[in-house]
Structures are given as C-alpha cells and as structure tokens.
Design a protein around this nucleic acid. Structure first.
Length: 425
RNA sequence: GGAGAGGUGGCCGAGUGGUUGAAGGCGCGCCCCUGCUAAGGGCGUAUAGGGGAAACCUUAUCGAGGGUUCGAAUCCCUCCCUCUCCGCCA
C-alpha cells in the first residue's frame, strides 16, 4: 500500500510516476473521498468525545448520589446521530482502503518506460552460448528419452496438464539442485534457512500483495477456512515479520527457503504448453531480506548477485534485465529478471525475478523496526528473489548440457550432490 | 473430534461495569547520589489515526468480530489462537 498521506500531499506527482506502470491514479476521486472522510471523522470524534464526557459525569453524579435522569436523557439523544455518522465514516474509509489496496507500488526512477517485456533493458550478459554441431533437442524431448527422466504423460493421467513426474536420476538432480542452492545461500551468502507452511491465510496474501487483485492466479482450498496454497515462498517468509516491531540490531533478516509453489496460471493457456517451463506446481529456493529503508536498493543488487552466483556456479549462460514499467509486478518498485539461455528456444528465459518492494509490503503487513535515531517504529523495506526456480534450472541444465547422443552433462558443482554421477544417459 | 484452562503494554503480571491507556514488577532512557564497582533515589517510558504553524487537543486499541449499556478489559454471542487431558493419526 502507498502512504495515504503521500497521496494526499503529492497526489499529482505520484499519479505521474504510476503512469510508468500503466496505472491511472484517480487523484480527484481520492481528494473527494478524503474530504468526506475528514468531515465525517471530525464530526464523529467530537460526538464521541461529548458522549465520553457525559458518561463520565454520570459515573461521578451517581457516586455522589445525585439525580442522573436528565443527563442520561441528553446522552441518549445523541446516540442515533453518532451511529449514523459512524456508519457513514466507515463506508468512506472502506472505500478508501479498498481503492488503496488496488493501487500498485510506485516504480523506482531507474525503471525504464515501456508496455511489455520488449522494453526491458538488458544490463548484463554472462557466459558463453555454445555452438552445437548437431541437431539440438528441447528439454522435454531429452527428458522423455531418458530412462530415468521426465514423464509428462503419466503426470497428465495423475493430475492433468502442466504437471510432471520425475524418475530416478532426474528426480535426484532436482533434489541436488535444491540442496546445492540452499547450501550456497546459507554457507556462502549468510542466509538462514527457514521452512514454512505451504498453506497460508488471506491476511498473508494481502500483506505481500497477491490479494485482493490476483485471486484467480491462486489455488484456494475448499471449505470455509479462507486458506490458499502458496504461489511463492515470498508469501509465508515475508509475512514472518507481519505485525512485528523488529529490534534494529536484528536487521537485516536474511531468509532462504525451499518450497513448492502453486499457480493456477489462469490466462496463460497458449504459453509454454510443452515441458516444464510453466507448471501448476513447481519448486523454488527463495531469498527474502527484511532491511532498513536506506539499505533496500543496495540489498536488491546484493540479492540479485546471490542468485546470479548460482547460475555462474552451474555454468549456465544468462542475462540480466531490468523490467520496464509495464512488465513490473504490482508490489515491486524495481525488478531484475535473470534469464537463462535455452538453446532449443534460441533465447533467454526467466529463471529468477529479484525485486525491491520498498515499504509497500511492509505497510500492508504492519512490519516495522525500531529506528534508534528516532526511537520510533518505522516501516521496514522488503526485498526478495528466486535463487533459483528449480524446475527451470533443471530445464536449463538439460538443454545446455545435452550431447549428440542425448545424454546430459551434469555441472561440476552438482556432481558431489549426485554421488559422483557426471552424466545422465 | 470430545472435556477443561487461558489469551491484558517490549516482557512478566493485577484488574472492581464508571476520573483505567490500564496497578505492581522487569527491562529501557534521562537525571541525582556514591571518589571505582555494587547498591540506592527521582523522573520518564505503547501504537495507530485525525485536527492544528505549534503548544496542544481528540478518537480508537486489553486475541478478532458482533451485541447489551449513558458508559465494557470487565457482562452476552460467534470465531481464531495457545496450553492440559482423552480419542485418532504421520
């Protein structure tokens, strides 16, 4: 959520910035609603104050043994007016917050203009894209040909499209990737591993910004209990600090978490129908940092570098892009996507998304820290990124490591995690 | 699923339908005293919102949401969570 005060005082400037994100802030409507709110709040509060004063007088008069019938009547007569004012005030306040909950975060000054991914700006390329002197296959083909490989058909039988069964060494490679990434982030990059619920309530999803706007992307559990499968570990991990005031010396909090992620992928029917690129269920190692406001930009760079390090160790060629306004996520102020080279598609595909959310999620979550300079609780900043998406990493290893006979070379760093196995064949 | 107990400020912990934003303690901050240290004393110490240039005024908050009442931490209802015992289960 944006700071309501800021909308009040610098609405026009914010509206201009939000245009980069293709969002039209209705400043006039907000001003109008706020004017109503102000009037109603003043009236309501002064009525309440009056009632409180008189009620206290009743207490005193009663204790002194005086007659209270007259004052009782005078306060009784205020009741109806107070009730209606209260109701009106609540309606206006609800309208304001529900509008505010739908306003995205303001993009950082670095964010380039543009409507879609075509306008994303490349900032770095790493690694050599290999030349293959044989006809290359895509990961699905490679995986299905392996005896211990990928099995989309059986997954479709078990569940439906966009699921996969991994057998034997493919499953082991998948597990090795998780282990390797967690080890690297906890041992080399200073993150603390955390294991969290895969089911969350709506409050958590409101906190990180998936709700109320993006409910159709989520799997909701049946029953009356208001629970959802997580679309990313970002939700439970970031919400660890919801409704908390964190001691300054505990910051930054650095969490690494491996979870499955569930996405209904509504509205993406045509895209990536084949293979493991886009699944309803996939796994991810997620990095989350809770930081002091002044550090968040620097931390985004660091955290992105931590994700990049994984790609480098796996010797996978990638590029780094900064997302343009139109492609930037709802709650993010700035996002770097890491895109890995996929030979079969002759292009780079997203494998990690690292974002700074400034105080946007923190305000929704009431996540604060005690600033020693002011002595006051102030909103933290949140930063997160995938480090990395496991399934897509497996895809990249299959495709980049393929050999003419259809076998797949396992990156050196993973060999120990595969108990010495160097080749999938 | 059944039975019981409980949820109060950064923490512990009292609490009567009425001047309780909430005793007391711990912690924390400032100050005093003590030639160091320990001990002691004084004062202060929640959060969010609104109005105001400011001083300051004001509203709300005792798990959440409703209700009763002139007035609710206190009474009633619903829900959530924690603990103990039983059942079931990995």
């Amino acid at each position: 959520m944006l700071d309501p005060k800021r909308i009040r005082t610098e609405g026009e400037a914010l509206a201009k910035q939000l245009l980069v994100k293709k969002f039209e802030l209705d400043v006039a409507r907000m001003e109008n609603l706020d004017q109503q709110r102000k009037t109603l709040q003043l009236e309501t509060e002064s009525l309440q104050n009056e009632r409180n004063l008189r009620s206290k007088m009743i207490g005193k008069a009663k204790a002194a043994g005086e007659d209270i019938s007259e004052i009782l009547q005078s306060v009784d007569s205020m009741k109806a007016e107070l009730e209606t004012k209260k109701e009106q005030l609540h309606l206006v306040q609800e309208e304001i917050t529900s509008y505010l909950m739908g306003v995205p975060n303001v993009p950082d000054d670095d964010v380039p203009e543009g409507n879609d991914e075509a306008s994303n700006k490349e900032v770095l390329r790493w690694g050599e894209v290999k030349n293959y002197d044989f006809e290359i296959k895509d990961h699905a083909e490679l995986g299905e040909a392996l005896e211990q490989g990928l099995d989309f058909e059986t997954a479709a039988k078990l569940t439906g499209s966009r699921f996969v069964v991994m057998h034997g060494n493919a499953a082991k490679l998948h597990r090795a990737l998780i282990q390797f990434m967690l080890d690297t982030h906890t041992l080399e990059h200073g993150y603390t591993e955390v294991n969290v619920p895969y089911i969350v309530n709506s409050q958590s999803l409101l906190g990180t910004g998936q709700l109320p706007k993006f409910e159709e992307d989520l799997y909701k559990l049946r029953g009356d209990h208001d629970l959802y499968l997580i679309p990313t570990a970002e939700v439970p991990v970031t919400n660890l600090v919801r409704d908390q005031i964190i001691d300054a010396d505990r910051l930054p909090l650095k969490y690494a978490s491996h979870t499955p992620c569930f996405r209904s992928e509504a509205g993406s029917y045509g895209k990536d129908t084949k293979g493991m690129i886009r699944q309803h269920q996939f796994e991810k190692v997620e990095l989350v940092q809770i930081v002091r406001p002044e550090d968040s930009n620097k931390v985004l760079e660091e955290l992105t570098a931590h994700a990049e390090k994984i790609l480098q160790l796996l010797e996978l060629p990638y590029r780094k892009v900064i997302l343009c306004g139109g492609d930037l996520g709802f709650a993010a102020s700035k996002t770097y996507d890491l895109e890995v080279w996929l030979p079969s598609q002759d292009t780079y595909r997203e494998i990690s998304s690292c974002s700074c959310f400034t105080d946007y999620q923190a305000r929704r979550m009431h996540a604060r820290w005690r600033n020693p300079d002011s002595g006051k609780p102030e909103l933290v900043h949140t930063v997160n990124g995938s480090g990395l998406a496991i399934g897509r990493t497996l895809v990249a290893i299959f495709e980049n490591g393929q050999q003419e006979d259809g076998s797949i070379r396992i990156p050196k760093v993973l060999v120990p995690y595969m108990n010495g196995l160097e080749l999938l064949s």
